[in-house]
Design a protein around this nucleic acid. Structure first.
Lengths: 262, 262
DNA sequence: TTGGTATTGTGTATTATTGACACATTAATT
DNA sequence: AATTAATGTGTCAATAATACACAATACCAA
């Protein structure tokens, strides 16, 4: 187990010289399934603590590309919505490393490897990235430090290492504030979806229920939805239509911000 | 001149060991005077190029505090609105150093001082901070690298070093988007101001003229303005009232966002 | 064929907001 | 008393938000 772990972190040791010091990225990757908003989390090997997917920035790599790389490595997805939302630079986030059970275990574990030990013991300023992913398309993959990579509903978040709970909250605030400027539906729903799917998604984000009739009327009026065939479920009732987005119209609307009260 | 400059930058040489590598902050400090929005800029000594006030982060200092420190050192003001708005991390912003006339002069100038030369030649990721200041209360002070520190109207911005023009534009975008959540009036206007002052400020930010009557009706209805005595100018007409903000009400309104269309 | 059911489309009354103006009133100076 | 800028109020039309009601549709099963 210990040996196994040593082998796994060796890539980091080799990589360190190629990394920018003091800087890291953390990703809050949001998905939507079973009418719930979810975040992609990693469970660390030695402590069992949960953490946001994150990583370091290479000397020859754009900050945005570092986040993109982390995202791809964890989800297998490359073309999803990704945007920086805040940079976390308080001193506490590094001093807390000594107290945080999850992080402490990691540090203790590396006392024998001076290079890695010094690296992870340093102070990092971390830029938080916000991503929207279609859960059905993802294949969560743990990183070298983790034993699990899973989607967790935001209504039942575990305790995360360091300030990762704070980072997550800030990302969700961002979602609320930027609602009319983010490709919510396009990113979180499958290619084809029902009007009810869309409404439930907005209800989950807004945290309140919406009038079915008015919601549909307004959504259709925006002109960004394309009606497809019906979804035959086998239920004894009229089958709902499936919709997909007209990307061109959607993106144009987002640029101005969908002035909309739902 | 050369000697003089050497002396001036020596503090940086001593400070370098106490600084976090790879990270810097840049401040877009906005003010309002003569019905114009203005930005505080520095003019560098050896090239005459203009730049945003910026600085580095001490190992034992919060990122926010570093920005606060830069702000205080340039304006003499400590209690003004300051908020991070974006982190600039593209590779280009450092590779362009070789081409940028302003920066190149600075680099060349330090070829003999290895420590400083290597430091400024490094790649930095910079967090942009957005500040709102009352111009009347500021006393602009150049830093060790600069010969001037002045307010320049945003309608006539000079060419800035590196990506500082981009940073400024992004800050102004931020201003527009966050308008209803920022203490515009409280920060940019003097303690007492007329309704017309307030309207002109909003017109400058929004870039369009507003209906006088509707603007006043809405503003007063928000209940955040306190009417004071009149402003006697000596002109042959009715004197305008002076107003000040009820800070408690104003801040409460900002939390929700002033739902307002001006 | 018919009944039960969820989906979908449409109407509509109420209330609130916005934008553009008109116009009357007030007050400071000359 | 005349001039001027500031202030206060009214109003009309257009648009949007909110809350419902109800009719029409179409799927399956019995």
């Amino acid at each position: 187990m210990s040996d196994n772990f040593e082998k796994l972190i060796s890539p980091l040791e080799k990589e360190i010289d190629d990394l920018l010091p003091s800087i890291s990225v953390d990703c809050v990757i949001l998905g939507y399934k079973n009418q719930q908003l979810k975040v992609l989390l990693l469970q660390w090997k030695h402590s069992g603590k949960w953490a946001l997917p994150g990583g370091f920035v290479r000397r020859n790599e754009n900050l945005d590309d570092a986040a993109q790389r982390v995202l791809e490595q964890r989800t297998g997805l490359s073309k999803i919505f990704l945007k920086q939302f805040h940079t976390f630079g308080s001193l506490e986030r590094s001093t807390i490393k000594q107290i945080d059970a999850g992080y402490k275990a990691l540090i203790d574990f590396h006392k024998q490897n001076k290079k890695v030990y010094e690296w992870i013991n340093n102070r990092f300023i971390s830029t938080g990235y916000f991503a929207l992913a279609d859960i059905r398309k993802t294949h969560p993959i743990p990183d070298a430090f983790s034993q699990k990579c899973e989607w967790k509903p935001i209504t039942a978040m575990p305790d995360l290492i360091l300030d990762h709970n704070t980072i997550t909250e800030k990302a969700l605030d961002y979602l609320g504030v930027q609602l009319n400027y983010l490709p919510i539906g396009l990113s979180l729903l499958p290619q084809k979806f029902t009007m009810q799917d869309l409404q439930k998604l907005y209800e989950a984000i807004l945290g309140r229920s919406l009038d079915r009739s008015n919601f549909q009327r307004k959504m259709l009026k925006l002109g960004m939805l394309v009606r497809k065939e019906k979804l035959m479920t086998g239920a004894a009732n009229k089958a709902p239509y499936l919709y997909s987005f007209n990307r061109a119209v959607y993106k144009k609307l987002l640029q101005e911000g969908i002035g909309f009260s739902y």
